[in-house]
Every structure is written in structure tokens, then in C-alpha cells.
Amino acid sequence: MNLYTLFISLYLSFGAGTNYYTPVQKSSLQDSIKKGKVVYESFCMTCHMANGEGLPKAFPPLAKADYLMNKRAESIKAIKYGLSGTIVVNGNTFKGSMAPLGLSDKQVADVMNYITNSWGNQNDKMVTEKEVSEIRP
């Protein structure tokens, strides 16, 4: 094997450019996002709207949402167990409650992958079912 072939092999093996997902991981993420969109449309869209922008003073946005992107565990916990009280999203205070949705850990992971990769959000680390299963109330 010549040096050029070795370099290309290493380049492709360890990630080309800024995409650090292997082809299998990327395929898994895309599959999870597709499934998450179905979950979102069934359970979340009524409050957070089709565009993820929520309703001012009532339901927080998910689109370009600092809370969602910076508080990963808290966001998973909210989807898994519900949420009540006050949160601040993009500088706006929301006080209310979100009932537990009764989703499986896989559904929570899928919807997290969808919402953290939609509407201007970009997540560089896939949410897994295992990660969701480790979140406690």
C-alpha cells in the first residue's frame, strides 16, 4: 500500500471534513430523525407548532432554542417525565407545565434527534436510547 492509499484510507476511516459520523452512524441518525418527526407531529406539534416556534408567552420555542441545545439532559427529562415550573428560553421566561407524554426511551431519543436537528438547530452528538434510559426524574 502506498502512502497516498494509506492517507485516503485513514482520512475516510476517521472522518472527512467536519462530519464525524461514520456512514452507519449517519444512517442511524437520519433514521432516528425521520422517526422523531412522526413522534413530534403526533405529540408535540400542537403546542410547539409545525415550525418549532411555539407560542409566545405560552409554549417555548424549539427552533434555535438555547435551552434545548444547552440543557440536553434537562430537555430529555422534560420529554420523558414532563415539566412544570419556570424555564428561560432565548431570554424569555415561560411558566407552565408539560405533561409526561408516555413515550418510550427510543421515541424520546428519536424526537430529541429530530428537534435538535431542525429549524436552525444542529446537534453534533446523536441522542441514544441508552442515554435516555439513564435520565432519572
Rank of each mutant, 00 (worst) to 15 (best):
Trp119Val: 07
Met45Arg: 13
Thr128Met: 02
Ser118Glu: 07
Gln122Lys: 14
Cys44Val: 05
Thr18Pro: 03
Ser84Thr: 11
Met112Asn: 11
Val88Phe: 06
Ser133Gly: 05
Phe7Gly: 00
Gln107Ser: 12
Lys26Cys: 01
Ala63Ile: 05
Ala50Arg: 09
Ala63Lys: 11
Val108Met: 06
Ala50Cys: 00
Gly52Ile: 07
Thr128Val: 05
Asn121Arg: 00
Ala99Ile: 10
Asn121Gly: 00
Glu131Asn: 06
Cys47Tyr: 08
Ile76Val: 15
His48Trp: 10
Ile87Ala: 08
Asn121Lys: 00
Lys57Gly: 04
Ala78Lys: 01
Gln107His: 10
Lys64Arg: 14
Gly85Phe: 11
Asn51Lys: 06
Ala73Lys: 15
Thr128Ala: 04
Ser75Gly: 06
Cys47Arg: 07
Ala63His: 08
Asn121Val: 01
Met98Lys: 11
Met126Thr: 15
Pro56Asp: 12
Ser104Gln: 04
Phe43Trp: 08
Val108Glu: 03
Leu83Phe: 15
Ile79Asn: 06
Glu131Arg: 03
Val24His: 07
Met98Glu: 11
Asn92Leu: 09
Ala65Arg: 01
Pro60Trp: 05
Ser27Tyr: 12
Thr93Lys: 14
Asn19His: 02
Met45Pro: 00
Thr116Pro: 01
Gln25Ala: 13
Ser84Asn: 13
Lys80Tyr: 11
Phe43His: 14
Met1Gly: 15
Pro61Leu: 06
Lys125Glu: 13
Ile135Phe: 02
Lys37Trp: 03
Asn121Ile: 03
Lys37Cys: 01
Lys64Cys: 01
Ser84Gln: 13
Pro137Arg: 11
